[in-house]
Design a protein around this nucleic acid. Structure first.
Lengths: 245, 245
DNA sequence: CGAGGGTTTGAAGTGCATCAAATAGTGTGG
DNA sequence: CCACACTATTTGATGCACTTCAAACCCTCG
């Protein structure tokens, strides 16, 4: 399957960690890779399950979460193309430390954890890339915490929409929410009811237009003025996120 | 100064990342190390400042924080002996990504960032140790977020005290808060007033005795029953924290 | 002793959660 | 193609935890 190999190679090149990989290394990865296609709702792995492989997303969205004692889900992250997950099992005794589920139909590439671990020890470039990507994830997580504290519900939604937007377009901007409003609400740490009300308030305050999963506005500025004023990193925080030292 | 070299070596061996280091490597580190003693309140470095060195704590407490636009501080972490900080500047364009201040008189060892970076590329063991330690920090951060959501103010204080306690002693237990109550409050994401009231409630509910910065109790159990019931990882969560995948 | 923080207590307000119910969408089988 | 079932979303009403503002108290250190 020459096509499949190429497609996997492209996926790896698109991911932060393997983009710097040399041809020989990538070939080795591809030999041991697998492609998976999961429908919406499919559970990819569960918390505490023995971990043999980690994943890179080709397309679609994946929800990372944990179940609390009373059965409710705590959303850890919702990630998409280019992102890697499950690799942290390497550092937690070989078991996954959260559950993963396809939030929308998802195409994934999986690789053996053992391969990654052995490569790190001998490949300094890879280790640095992995550290770099981990540092960045911590930046993002750190920003999330800050937002959780400093922004109210409406501002968090505004911030979320801003980060979905392609900042290059100057004129009217159209954004589609990538998944259920319920899931967005969970992602932002609020109840669906609060989300609904907060979105209505955001609409009033900033003049954005919401219809179903579609959000329209004339410029990002009206939104960033409202949402980013409470944030320590200013607009756009996507690029400026700070990390725990 | 043979004594000073030894003392630095001990500090490095006590830190998570360098504990596995070989003699030759440690010697190289020690040659380029410096010792600092900072009084309470001293600013060690500030956000966005050019970063040349990173630090390891020998003794005392260090507060990591960021300033928001309106001048209030967002506490990122408060760390003590054995912990490393400032090294993340390596991955954020060579500037520190938060400010650091001595929360109590602190003794620190500092090392050049460049040395760490160059070592990682050639020393696979070190890279793995660093990844491991980063993964663990993310675990802790992840737990903090969960606590923030699931526990109320009193439970968070209880959990904080539990983690200060040495679990080995069976009988009566005495704990000293390591720094200002105001700072503890900030650390736990609440106002000083809320902290005061929540601590009073905790006292009533669990029978712990608080006098100034001293906390006494007969057993940890009464506290863990109250504080850890809301937590997904049970007691003691210190060891069982889960990490973002 | 007295000034200045740290800490506690009181009173009122705010934002979000929760419970409840109505409404809008979406997909299914007849 | 429609009616039904089921879920997502919205809206209303109420409660609670924490915040905020204000003032008193208490340490401790010059």
């Amino acid at each position: 399957m020459q096509n499949e190999r190429q497609s996997i190679e492209i996926s790896l090149k698109n991911s932060a960690v393997f983009s710097i990989g040399e041809k020989a290394f990538l070939d080795k990865l591809i030999d041991q890779s697998q492609i998976h296609i999961f429908p919406k709702g499919h559970v990819i792995f569960t918390h505490e399950e023995q971990a043999k492989r980690f994943f890179i997303i080709k397309s679609g969205w994946v929800k990372l979460y944990r179940e609390t004692l009373d059965g409710t889900q705590a959303i850890i992250d919702i990630i998409n193309a280019g992102q890697m997950f499950g690799e942290a099992a390497m550092f937690s005794g070989g078991v996954y430390n959260c559950s993963a589920e396809a939030a929308e139909e998802a195409m994934l590439v999986s690789l053996p954890l053992a391969l990654l671990k052995s490569e790190i020890e001998t490949n300094g470039k890879l280790a640095l890339a992995l550290l770099q990507s981990t540092a960045q994830k911590r930046e993002e997580q750190s920003r999330e915490i800050e937002h959780q504290f400093l922004q109210n519900a409406s501002q968090r939604i505004g911030c979320f929409i801003l980060r979905l937007a392609n900042q290059n377009k100057p004129g009217g901007i159209v954004i589609h929410l990538p998944y259920d409003k319920m899931l967005v609400a969970a992602r932002l740490g609020m109840q669906p009811e609060t989300f609904s009300r907060a979105l209505a308030k955001l609409r009033e305050e900033t003049g954005i237009r919401v219809k179903g999963a579609t959000v329209e506005m004339d410029s990002l500025e009206q939104l960033s003025n409202y949402a980013c004023s409470a944030c320590s990193s200013g607009f756009p925080c996507k690029d400026k996120a700070t990390v725990v030292c």
